[in-house]
């Protein structure tokens, strides 16, 4: 797990952010006020021409959800995934915790993946 390689105290959970990219208006609140500074603007555009955030340091995310509290557009939020759970294993293998069936949630992407 990435969390084990950071040198910080091993956690029982892994932080993750989920982003509804098309809601983002690029205000930058989440990137600026993220305590471990793990977010950056994506180079890609969303449907409205804004750059949504992406998680650039998966190991650093604590899932504190401060991004979710700041986001004025309800476009991002943080969660804590227990490292032992099947969802966490699936996610580590590159599969979204939302499952492969993304009908209805096509604009929701896991923060780290593009």
């Amino acid at each position: 797990m990435p969390a084990a390689t950071t040198g910080v105290k091993a956690r029982k959970f892994r932080g993750e952010v989920l982003i509804t990219e098309d809601r983002c208006k690029e205000c930058g609140f989440c990137i600026e006020f993220c305590p471990p500074k793990v977010l950056e603007f994506s180079k890609e555009f969303n449907r409205h021409g804004y750059h949504p955030p992406i998680l650039v340091n998966e190991a650093g995310c604590t899932g504190c959800d401060l991004c979710g509290l700041y986001c004025p557009d309800f476009a991002i939020y943080g969660i804590r995934v227990p490292v032992e759970s099947p969802a966490a294993t699936a996610s580590a293998a590159g599969v979204s915790p939302l499952g492969n069936d993304t009908s209805g949630v096509e604009s929701v992407r896991q923060g780290g993946g593009i």
């Binding site: 809601r23 409205h48 004025p72 309800f74 939020y77 969802a87 492969n100 069936d101």
Partner: peptide, 27 residues
């Protein structure tokens, strides 16, 4: 759907069909 479908904690309180809202970027 997968086993775990996390949801944004604000979502149950929103009328999601009205998103995105009219407020400006940075409001």
């Amino acid at each position: 759907m997968g086993v775990m479908v996390p949801f944004n904690p604000v979502e149950p309180f929103l009328r999601s069909e009205r998103m995105p809202h009219i407020w400006c970027s940075g409001c």
